[in-house]
Amino acid sequence: MITHELFHTLHQLSRHLTNKLNEALTPMGLYGSQWAVIFVLKNKGSLTQRELCDYLFVEAPPMTRNIQRLVKQGYVRQVSGKDKRAKYIELTEEALKLYPEWESVVNEVNQTLLKHFPQTSQEELLTLQSSWLKQLL
Results as ranks from 00 to 15, higher is better:
P61F: 01
T48G: 06
F57Y: 13
G74Y: 14
R50M: 02
R69A: 15
R50T: 05
D54Y: 06
V76L: 07
R69L: 13
L56F: 09
D54F: 04
R50A: 07
T48D: 02
R77K: 13
R50C: 03
V71Q: 14
R65D: 07
Q68D: 13
Q68E: 11
T64W: 04
T64G: 04
Y75L: 15
C53I: 04
M63W: 03
L56V: 10
R69E: 15
I67Y: 02
L47M: 11
L52M: 08
N66K: 12
C53L: 02
R65L: 10
Q49H: 06
M63L: 07
Y75R: 15
R77I: 13
I67G: 04
Q73K: 15
G74Q: 05
E59Y: 09
C53W: 06
L56N: 03
Q73E: 13
Q49F: 04
A60P: 03
C53R: 04
Q49S: 13
T48W: 00
A60K: 14
A60Q: 15
V71K: 11
R77M: 13
P62T: 05
R50I: 05
Y55L: 10
Y55N: 13
V76I: 08
Y75E: 07
V76R: 06
P62F: 02
Q49P: 09
Y75K: 10
R65H: 08
L70W: 05
Q73H: 12
L47Y: 01
T64H: 09
R77P: 00
V76T: 14
V71L: 10
Q49R: 12
Q49G: 14
F57H: 14
P62A: 01
L70C: 06
P62N: 06
R69C: 09
I67W: 02
G74M: 06
L52F: 09
D54G: 08
V58N: 01
I67K: 00
D54R: 13
P62Y: 04
R77Q: 12
E51G: 06
L47W: 00
V71T: 07
P61E: 01
A60H: 14
Y55V: 06
L47Q: 06
Y55K: 11
V58E: 03
F57P: 03
P61V: 00
R65C: 02
V71H: 12
K72N: 15
A60Y: 08
R65F: 02
I67F: 03
Q68G: 02
F57R: 11
Q68I: 10
C53G: 07
K72H: 15
F57S: 12
